[in-house]
Nucleic acid binder design. Structure first.
Lengths: 198, 198, 198, 198
DNA sequence: CATGAATGAGGCTTCATTCAT
DNA sequence: GATGAATGAAGCCTCATTCAT
């Protein structure tokens, strides 16, 4: 079956959104594999068949959710760092924002991680999109001497790796925000890694 | 079900090992959920029922494989860094060793990552064990002024995050070792993050 | 459910006909069971619900199509044999006409065959109606000594059987008209089977 | 999934056969599409999953049954016509044998007919195999002047068509053997169609 | 120690049909 | 007359696990 048509009515659009929300919760709570369409539709308050009016398969929903998380995260980061005066401030605010975001959207974050085992391409795409933006920001900062002459791409991935484990430890495992000292300690490493030497 | 007793005979031990190897490949290739006991036993050349002579369940195998990877990885890192003269050399050699190891044991590495969605505790335990050793090493290095006065634990997790993404990008996604420049670039960030300032 | 009333308006009649045509194609191409109402309505360019404005069920459509094929076929045969001077000529022209018709209306023909597994009565009725006319024609021919004194009914079914397999082999399986020699060869058997002995 | 291994034990072989028998009944009674795996396994007295130990899919069973009917029918025909002294006797005995066989194996016969709508190739193959043997027999008879110089292949298909409708009318629709007069009447047409003219 | 047949719950998905607009 | 969203039953199939030998 080819792509499903978008819902034609507002009612349809609302149902679709309810399903998406329900899926986010179900996947987040039970994991993709343990989650069932029945669970999703039940939570959304519709019949099982309704699911397939809006999504061709269970996998398509996870794909859509990963995309969604990508957008939301970029948005959150952009917003949080909008007022930063230099790149290191961007990094700092970005780490904080990510820590908040990953806790708030714990389910989505878990889904993104699990998507690796459902559709590697979507997972990879998620990070590559992120890395690209990240590297671009670093490149600009290097040009303005706000950051050492690091390789922007390698640095971007390194920083994402650091952030990833912050999210994992605190948002996922401990279900809380990292304590300020921890964030300070992590950022201290980041800062020394990036800041220009006199 | 209590844990199964270890096989008494050498033949049994061999069968058990064959099953473990087969599971490593099957899980690595198809992923934990898509892999089937039938696939594992077929690959191991034994009957399906034989599996349950050695493992109480499918999940137990992944647990055992994750432990296994933990041991092997620590062994590989210890070996690779044995001759290092200072901590930064340890880091450098460690990154290189990890890059090689994650490529060589791609399947195992994938399994570790997926174990998060099968048994979070095992996954978390894997990293916590690693982090503990890592942090201890850093602590010693700090005492000897080979590394800045960072928070050893936070730094350990940050460095593991960096390494994780190196493994992901190269061993998993590209199925090759990282090019030397990439490793240099990453290590450059690490070094500046850790090395003492004059 | 009693039969649905015929549409009152010309627009309704047109929609009904579009649905019938679409069903003919869908059933012919995918088979009755694999064909879906959604496929039919899509092809007809109407909404799914519209189908049930004109037909009480999927089965009713196949029934109507079988009837339709019966009428059309009888018409085609009558037309094709109108100018025949004796019964054997009728047979010959009839076989030719059937070969053409079954190719041209391949989909309908397939539908008739499949109707056996949807509603045996409709299928049986189709052939019994045909057989009746066929036998009547033979009976008249026998009275006029244009055909041997065969049992008209048995002969009619035998001849339909022969024709059926001509349609199957050529129209359905090979999607072409039978080569003239083949038709000659078949008719040769028919002729000897029917023609009066001196 | 590739082909399933044949059962290794006698018990397995027996189960497989029970499933085949059950499927024959279920398909014959309800038709292929209406028949369910659940119905088959219930009738066979095994769990649903057991079905898939022996057959990759529902369709594979029908394929196997069609093959089976082919073999059995050829066997029955060969046996019934073994003592015939000339080809017309073969034809006569063959028609009688087919009439008996199609009644006795009504379910199988129905299944063969329906197989056309499940896997056209299997249905076609069934008849082509039959036709080949039939034509060969006719060819030999022609060489020995027991039959007119008809085109063996065309004649074979024509005769199969006649027999098919005999089976349909009596075995399937009326669930009885054709009355002797009917068989006589049909054979009379066949005989005139085939026998050499003086 | 090993086999391989058997189980049965459970999941995804399809689709004819109904209903509210 | 027409729409298209919604229903929900039903079916195929998979697979971890158990059992009899």
């Amino acid at each position: 079956m080819p792509t499903l048509p978008r819902p034609a009515t507002a009612r349809g659009e609302a149902t679709r959104q309810r399903l998406l929300d329900a899926a986010e919760t179900e996947f987040g709570v039970h994991g993709f594999h343990a989650a069932s369409i029945a669970g999703i539709t039940q939570r959304a308050g519709v019949a099982q068949g309704t699911f397939y009016l809006y999504f061709p398969s269970k996998e398509d929903v996870i794909r859509e959710l990963v995309h969604h998380m990508g957008h939301e995260l970029r948005l959150a980061l952009a917003t949080a760092t909008a007022d930063a005066t230099d790149r290191l401030a961007v990094e700092r605010l970005g780490f904080e924002a990510f820590a908040r975001f990953s806790l708030l959207h714990r389910n989505l974050y878990r889904i993104v991680m699990e998507s690796q085992f459902v559709d590697e391409a979507i997972y990879r795409g998620y990070y590559e999109a992120l890395a690209q933006g990240y590297a671009a920001g670093l490149r600009r900062a290097i040009e303005q001497d706000e950051v050492r002459a690091v390789d922007p791409e390698s640095a971007a991935w390194a920083l994402m790796g650091i952030a990833h484990f912050v999210g994992l430890r605190y948002a996922i495992w401990q279900e809380r925000e990292p304590p300020p000292e921890a964030l300070d300690a992590v950022f201290d490493v980041v800062r020394h890694g990036l800041e220009p030497r006199p």
